[in-house]
């Protein structure tokens, strides 16, 4: 357990940096989490992060990376729906890392 400071407010995160309370999430929180990992979020990152948030709202889980890849391909095109593209954006693992910035729990199946 720890906290990260976003615009003067302390926000609780677990030992791996995931949000403790999903309702604490704002874009600024996502940006700050990425900064801690030395990652500058671009429009391409946000596309994936926003997709994950929508997916979670609909299904109440974070998708496995295989499911994410396929669904991104369907929504944003084949040039983005492949693991090379997604791993370049999120080198620690697209589902795992992007879920963190999206304020979601780690995907089911991530040990």
């Amino acid at each position: 357990m720890g906290t990260i400071n976003v615009s003067g407010k302390d926000i609780e995160v677990d030992e791996e940096g995931y949000l403790v309370n999903r309702s604490d999430w704002t874009e600024a929180v996502g940006t700050e989490m990425a900064k801690i990992d030395n990652c500058d979020l671009t429009q391409n990152h946000w596309e994936v992060i926003n997709f994950l948030r929508e997916y979670y709202d609909e299904y109440q889980i974070a998708p496995a990376v295989r499911v994410l890849t396929k669904a991104i391909g369907k929504k944003l095109g084949a040039d983005k729906g492949n693991s090379k593209y997604l791993y370049e954006l999120f080198p620690y693992g697209p589902a795992k890392q992007a879920c963190k910035y999206a304020g979601l729990p780690k995907p089911t199946g991530c040990v």
Binding site: V65, A95, P107, G109, C110
Partner: peptide
């Protein structure tokens, strides 16, 4: 910490 590749490369 591993992330399953979900068999995408198999």
């Amino acid at each position: 910490m591993t992330e399953s590749t979900g068999g995408i490369d198999m």
